[in-house]
Simulated assay, not measured.
Amino acid sequence: MGSLAGKTLFITGASRGIGLAIALRAARDGAQIVIAAKSSVPNPKLPGTIHSAAEQVIAAGGKALAIKCDIREEDEVRAAVDAAVQTFGGIDILINNASAIWLAGALDTPVKRFDLMQQVNARGSFLCAQACLPHLLRSANPHILTLAPPPSLDPKWWAPHTGYTLAKMGMSFVTLGLAGEFGPRGVAVNALWPRTIVATDALNMIPGVPLERCRKPEIVADAAHAVLTRAAAGFTGRFLIDEDVLREEGIADFAPYAVDPTQPLLPDLFLDA
């Protein structure tokens, strides 16, 4: 695989989970990581803050800038991007990782929760891209990578949780649009989605999901690293699956990524068998 040494990554929701795993994988190369997330003080239900994430990034060999940022707030996003550029001189990669989830039907989805998902997922991804793109366009190998599934209009994915599906597919459609607009200008705009459910701290807040049947966040981080080290020119508008990306890199044994290799894995949402 190539290296992200010296590259600046702006990662939303990087205080824990998949976002943090991507940050740590890039840090091992010597990358510069902007940790943009809301968690600035410890939460007993969700371990990890922007400051603890920054410490881990530095310990892994990277540079870190921890910024408290709610991606629903335009002023905060633009201030965070400005701070990143002032500190590291530019932005090479945007990772749209931050996401809100509520897996319930229409009658059990409060409008406040519906609004939160749309604001964080689709609108947040668009806003972060809009703020980062002027700097990405000056990068030698710019990437936008969004944690979003392949677009689907199959009702089986919409009926159980219309609000969440709309929010995640919104991220997918933002990816499609930006890829069409900025791919010809040299920016690789792609999406990445896990084949199986990934064990994160946030998943602990969703009842009924057995973590022993999940994979570790490192599988997504390694796949993201493989994507982000590719040449950006002509590589855009793809909806990539972590397993497929790693197979292209010659990895065939996924057992080390399993929380418990003896247990059958749970497939993630939005993917057909």
Results as ranks from 00 to 15, higher is better:
residue 52 S to P: 03
residue 262 T to F: 04
residue 160 P to T: 08
residue 111 V to I: 15
residue 90 G to F: 09
residue 58 I to A: 15
residue 273 A to M: 14
residue 185 R to V: 05
residue 56 Q to F: 01
residue 92 D to P: 06
residue 78 R to A: 05
residue 16 R to F: 04
residue 49 T to C: 12
residue 46 L to W: 10
residue 88 F to L: 02
residue 64 A to E: 01
residue 250 G to L: 12
residue 129 A to E: 02
residue 126 F to C: 08
residue 163 G to E: 10
residue 27 A to C: 08
residue 102 W to M: 02
residue 269 L to K: 13
residue 183 G to M: 04
residue 130 Q to G: 06
residue 89 G to I: 06
residue 14 A to C: 08
residue 254 F to W: 00
residue 163 G to Q: 12
residue 106 A to T: 07
residue 143 H to R: 09
residue 18 I to P: 00
residue 121 N to F: 10
residue 104 A to R: 13
residue 58 I to T: 15
residue 128 C to S: 02
residue 225 H to Q: 01
residue 73 E to Y: 06
residue 205 M to G: 13
residue 50 I to V: 12
residue 198 V to N: 09
residue 30 G to T: 13
residue 222 D to F: 09
residue 113 R to A: 14
residue 261 P to N: 01
residue 70 D to A: 13
residue 137 L to R: 09
residue 102 W to N: 08
residue 108 D to W: 07
residue 153 L to S: 14
residue 44 P to M: 03
residue 61 G to K: 15
residue 172 S to Q: 02
residue 235 F to I: 09
residue 221 A to W: 04
residue 99 S to I: 00
residue 48 G to Q: 07
residue 83 A to C: 13
residue 239 F to W: 04
residue 103 L to R: 13
residue 146 T to D: 00
residue 46 L to E: 12
residue 116 L to D: 11
residue 35 I to G: 00
residue 271 L to F: 10
residue 23 A to V: 08
residue 200 T to R: 08
